[in-house]
Design a binder for these strands. Structure first.
Lengths: 209, 209
DNA sequence: TTATCAACGCGAGACGTCTCGTCTTTGTGT
DNA sequence: ACACAAAGACGAGACGTCTCGCGTTGATAA
């Protein structure tokens, strides 16, 4: 057992090869879609990226961490390419939510986004550390956009003044994610629309004049 | 080359040793709680159960499959031990739902149930075959109970006549599962209560006379 | 400015370890 | 005698570490 590399001293980020970094992230996304997360190996990522294994081990602690970074980059790309101009606010809350939730449905149904997303969800379910970073870096920022829009609606008088905003966000995103993850039924635009209507209006019988 | 390994083809279920079967299921539940799903090995299960590895490989295709069977047995036990007498129907839908969702929250927070549940969720996220059986055998029967209770409420006039029952079930279970899985916030009884109220009544401002 | 040089990230891949799933051997119950 | 269980040997393959030159970079000396 050779001697210790004493705690793997910190490599210098300034000297990092950005070309290699991008190649690694790209390769991990391609490969996870090709062979699935279980059969994804760091050796294969290194080979596909044209990189030594050590270059991956130097900068990431696990293949899950690589995928998280890759997904963050992917999300950024999607935002820029998709011409994202902020969460829509036309004044019509239901319409705005349906628009965004439909887009989310499309993303869930897009193989390109689904593969890494499933992988991260799976890995996060049994790795609290990864789960925390996944939630913090990828999920929270997105949920915050919903919350912001809902807050605007609440102040505009469209929502109950005492409504719990994080709860409401999860009422929208939770059922969608649940159906996607468990596969209880197909994910469609109609589902997104109906969900928004029921979250806003409730499922109880309306008894008014 | 192959050929006959006497065990490889069809083992006779009638000759199966039920003592070993139970020992394997018990050991898998104990171990997954002890070391987590990632570090759970079939060798360790075999050792703890006092059986040979081949006995596990003969009857199950993967460690996830073992855990699924173990969880099914666990769910059965929980039902019998817990004195389950069917989904409560006191006539007060909100109260009934809160009761059940609170119990679900407690289960999610109970290490004994959480460990195998996380494991199955993780494994199912990247294994469609397992996911299907997980959903079909463990989830669907539970969701059906919600649906039945909701149907009764709808017929009793408490719910909108045109409400989508599977959607409503997922509006209840989805946010709970989402928060549990992603760890966006702690799972509490208060959360369950508020969720039920908002699902039934909606989040919109009530504008009535 | 230009030549030199040490430091360090890099690609490549050998290495020993670990777990996997299969196969072989031996024991046991009917 | 026979079918299955227990135990473990075995090869395959991925793991993470390590070593080896190569190329780039930034500091120093001419």
């Amino acid at each position: 057992m050779s001697s210790r590399s004493p705690d793997a001293k910190a490599p210098d980020p300034a000297r990092r090869n950005d070309r290699s970094r991008r190649a690694i992230l790209d390769a991990s996304l391609t490969l996870v879609a090709e062979v699935g997360y279980n059969k994804l190996t760091i050796e294969a990522i290194a080979a596909r990226a044209g990189v030594g294994k050590q270059t991956i081990y130097r900068w990431w602690p696990s293949k899950a961490a690589v995928l998280l970074d890759a997904s963050l980059a992917l999300a950024d790309d999607a935002k820029t390419e998709g011409g994202w101009t902020g969460f829509p606010d036309t004044g019509d809350l239901a319409a705005d939510l349906k628009l965004v939730l439909r887009a989310t449905v499309d993303q869930f149904n897009d193989e390109k986004y689904e593969a890494p997303m499933r992988a991260l969800t799976a890995a996060g379910a049994t790795d609290p550390d990864l789960s925390a970073r996944f939630t913090e870096q990828l999920l929270k920022p997105q949920l915050a956009l919903y919350e912001e829009r809902l807050r605007a609606a609440r102040e505009a008088g469209g929502l109950a003044p005492d409504v719990d905003l994080p709860l409401t966000v999860e009422m929208l995103v939770g059922p969608l994610t649940y159906r996607w993850l468990m596969g209880t039924a197909p994910l469609t635009h109609a589902f997104a629309d109906e969900l928004v209507d029921r979250v806003l209006g409730g499922v109880s019988k309306v008894t008014e004049g």
